[in-house]
Design a protein around this nucleic acid. Structure first.
Length: 299
DNA sequence: GTCCAGGTGTTCC
DNA sequence: GGAACACATGGA
């Protein structure tokens, strides 16, 4: 695929999707819908892709990867803040994926107060136990599709809890029932408009503003949706309010007005930049109550 | 042992 | 209205 500037690793490993695995040779393997897929960055703005099932014209994969977005044009819509510029230039070509809305919703219900590596484990177990077998090339370990809502609804809450998701089992099961019964149609959210789609999502148990915005951004095509999690909260405080201490509600209001029509893309850059920067020599925590840097990037 | 994780719902003032 | 707390689980 001709992809232009595309940072494959940052895109697939920035907490948007939870089923991609990097092979020793640098290629990424995953499952999209019922298809096993492999993707490699071969340089020159090109991605080498392979699938087990008949891929047709690859339009489904182009859409998933967002290769037809123009990251340079999108970045031009961002406010000209030096802090944001630095985050963007740290991972040029970081894209926002367009995932299946049900898979995205279910995955992020499992995400609350969990580390990304643990979310991957729980999602993997969920697919293994309740998904359908997917055809893979010979020699590869078996793969499964993401379970349908009906499968999780009929499995029951206790069976879901067996996938080590703890208190989130009740939320996931209740939401699966909503979707399986037709009370919520995740595929329809992209046509409702942002406020209505967000309200529909937040009517699900265990889905608040943050998880709703993740689903809206990563699967429903609303590039202005701006999920504020603990990392983005830190980023906003330290980059934009180093001396004051605005509460989360105030920061949410700021995020809605400051970052523009592609705010969600800016958010993903801030999230990935701060999360990867924090992997540094430890013992920086608990530096005191003053919010002037907190250790991040103090030159 | 203690703290924290791509939060949310409930309870209390 | 907003702050405080409970909720499972596992790794640092």
């Amino acid at each position: 695929l001709d992809a232009g500037e595309y940072h494959l690793a940052a895109t697939l490993d920035s907490g948007q999707a939870f089923r991609w695995v990097r092979r020793a040779d640098g290629a990424w393997e995953g499952v999209i819908g019922r298809r096993w897929v492999e993707i490699s960055d071969i340089g020159g703005g090109r991605l080498e892709v392979g699938a087990q099932e008949d891929p047709g014209d690859w339009g489904w994969l182009r859409a998933y990867l967002g290769v037809d977005d123009d990251p340079v044009a999108i970045a031009r819509t961002f406010p000209p803040d030096p802090q944001l510029r630095e985050a963007v230039s740290a991972f040029p070509g970081l894209r926002v994926l367009r995932q299946d809305p049900w898979e995205c919703l279910a995955s992020f219900i499992l995400s609350s107060t969990k580390r990304i590596v643990q979310i991957r484990q729980v999602v993997g177990m969920l697919c293994e136990r309740f998904g359908e077998v997917v055809d893979v090339p010979s020699g590869h370990h078996p793969e499964h599709s993401f379970p349908k809502a009906a499968a999780l609804a009929s499995a029951g809450e206790d069976a879901l809890r067996g996938c080590r998701m703890g208190f989130r089992a009740r939320y996931l099961h209740a939401t699966a029932v909503r979707v399986a019964s037709g009370a919520l149609d995740p595929d329809r959210l992209s046509r409702l408009g942002l406020p209505l789609a967000r309200a529909e999502l937040m009517a699900c148990p265990g889905v608040g503003r943050k998880i709703a915005d993740c689903v809206l951004l990563f699967s429903c095509g609303y590039p202005a949706a701006f999920p504020v999690d603990v990392w983005v909260l830190r980023a906003l405080r330290e980059l934009y309010f180093p001396t004051r201490r605005p509460n989360p509600a105030r920061l949410l209001a700021f995020s809605e007005s400051h970052f523009g029509p592609y705010g969600g893309h800016a958010q993903q850059h801030l999230f990935h930049y701060f999360r990867t920067r924090s992997v540094r020599p430890a013992s920086v925590r608990r530096t005191g109550g003053v919010a002037s840097g907190g250790g991040f990037g103090a030159a």
